[in-house]
Amino acid sequence: MKNNQENNNLDEKGNDDLELGAVIKNEIEFYPKVGEWKTEFPVYDHDKCIGCGICVKHCPEGAIKLIKTPKGKKAVADLEWCKGCGICPTVCPTKAIQMRKK
């Protein structure tokens, strides 16, 4: 049966393979590799970054982390999971983030 849903394994699965009550495991290896989607990526200026964590909370892909550096806690994006959406520079209070073309 032609089905236009992406990543829909339902037709190959019988009822036995379906998660009970649609309660799903957090299996990150099945997550789409959104890092490949980007045409731009964020660059973090650690001199301006104050480690507030606002970008961490706003990233839709959860790609940003705060790490300990000699300058204090600073934001860093995992480019494998960053899709280049441009939200983090918009929310950064100190304008520490710039988008750069790939």
């Binding site: 849903q5 992406e6 789409p32 989607w37 839709p60 899709k83 280049g84 959406c85």
Partner: peptide, 11 residues
Amino acid sequence: PEFGPERSGAP
């Protein structure tokens, strides 16, 4: 449009 989850970057 194809009706699916709408996310920046998704096909």
